[in-house]
Nucleic acid binder design. Structure first.
Lengths: 121, 121, 121, 121
DNA sequence: GTGGTCTAGACCACC
DNA sequence: GTGGTCTAGACCACA
């Protein structure tokens, strides 16, 4: 996997999980790869994965059973959706709208850009 | 001024300048505060302001006259607008649209949030 | 059975035995379930039960007869009581009293909490 | 400093801070030692201190200012008191009272042990 | 096998 | 100087 330098690797891996969960991979209750397996797969130090998993656990997206591994939380998908959705609405959209106002971009222009984006998919 | 820990302080101050310039404060050619004044006002280390000013200069938003200080560039406003607009369209909007797709937020909902945002102003 | 992650599972199961013995279930001399039965009942790896039983044996609460199984020791109840009582007085109470001092909880308040606890039973 | 093996070192150091804050050292707003200083003082790896400080920050007992260090939160003392007090009343005391019941220790005996503890100070 | 903690030492951005 | 992240490698308790 390729990582940016703009964001901590352990967070990029966490985002990777968030996205996978949102996309419907990882059914609830499923065991995620062990710390060591993941470290090998991502070509990253086990400590870094450990940090990702702790972070996911703090956010109630996975839980841990002693000696067995980490498992996707029930309702993980809803949790992720809620976290991201909330962040979008509370933080990112207000910034966007404010920027649009200052840059004199109106909503019609946004609609066009939106169409262009989707036609590329 | 209050700073977040998520972004470098010198960049937060630069954004502050960008916004002020966009908002029409700072007529072209006007002298901006000296590094020391600004550092005092922002309760920040002068090195940090120095970094902000260098950054603004790199982006042709201010220019420097030895011994006199920093001055707002002619067409600074247009420069800022172009920089921000480009960044918005190339980087931020595609991310936003992708996030909307995953979170199942459609364009109608975005329009509503947009209205709510503007009714609060 | 539900386990917490804060304490080793084999110790949680051991505590379960301690409590049952104190509460008067498990007459002295009675055979306790086989390792396999217990593992099934607790939904736990047999190794884990094995560890519990060894631990109980080390504390003279059960004894083992080859080929027959594990049996509750004579005077198991008194043993458990002594172990727990000693642990309480030597380790837990001093910690509690020290915590009370720092948190400015006096003995009167403790008495009230004690009453509340018992009124709930 | 001497550490137990029963509990993670980074948590023992965190407890050390909790206790110091409760005891009234560390006025609010005061800067705590830098990660490196603390690591030297405690004869421990800087990473370990880093973990302690992150933990304290997660619990709103300290906050961080970029490049300057960690500072005791306003109301840190009340936060610590509330955390510990709540934990005592909700978790530890019920366990204690239940143990007392099973071990047939009555409240008078507790009072005696309490007196003995305090006469030792 | 699993996770969890720790050390040693490096590199980075930022103040 | 400050914190923050990462690697490499070790050791431990637990299932």
């Amino acid at each position: 996997m390729n990582f940016t330098n703009e964001k901590a690797i352990f967070l990029q891996i966490a985002d990777h999980f968030f996205d996978s969960i949102l996309a419907g991979k990882w059914p609830e209750g499923e065991r995620i790869p062990s710390v060591r397996e993941m470290a090998l797969a991502m070509e990253v130090n086990p400590n870094t994965i450990m940090r990702t998993y702790s972070y996911l656990q703090d956010n109630d997206v996975v839980f841990n059973r002693r000696g067995l591994g980490y498992f996707v939380s029930p309702s993980a998908k809803e949790r992720v959706k809620a976290i991201k959705r909330n962040n979008l609405i509370e933080n990112e959209l207000p910034k966007l709208f404010e920027a649009m106002r200052l840059l004199e971009i109106d909503f019609e222009e946004l609609r066009e850009l939106f169409s262009i984006h989707h036609s590329k998919l």
